[in-house]
Design a protein around this nucleic acid. Structure first.
Length: 111
DNA sequence: CTTATGACTTTCA
DNA sequence: CTGAAAGCCATAA
């Protein structure tokens, strides 16, 4: 299952760092499946929302894309700031500084 | 199998 | 920098 791999991967994102949807998709072997990643997180079961750091996943622009009322953008931002992630004047995250670089053990796993 | 949807990405104006 | 349009993928009905 693609979305299960997404959850499993998102769980391994360390605090204080973020990953883009495209990055997640690429690690799973489908660089074009960013949308599917978004779908997976949108359909994230509430039971797993507490153990999956969904807030550490953002779009390629370093912005929060969620329009889900269950998990509002303001809450996602709040959680990220709580982990030390800084937003610039345009509510964007410096990907060059907070972008998560998956350890070799990860991409070797899904290769 | 076909159609529809979504927390995306890239490109162009 | 913002916004629009087209492209692409997995899942659901």
């Amino acid at each position: 299952m693609f979305y299960r791999q997404v959850y499993q991967l998102v769980q391994q994102i360390p605090p204080g760092q973020v990953a883009t949807y495209g990055q997640i998709a690429a690690l799973l072997g489908n660089p074009r499946a960013a949308r599917a990643v978004g779908w997976a997180l949108h359909r994230l079961p509430d039971g797993k929302s507490d153990r999956v750091p969904w807030h550490r996943v953002i779009n390629a622009q370093g912005r929060i894309s969620t329009s889900c009322r269950e998990h509002p953008a303001c809450e996602q931002r709040r959680r990220l700031e709580a982990e030390g992630v800084r937003f610039d004047a345009m509510d964007r995250i410096s990907l060059g500084e907070y972008r998560w670089e998956p350890p070799p053990a990860i991409w070797r796993k899904y290769l």
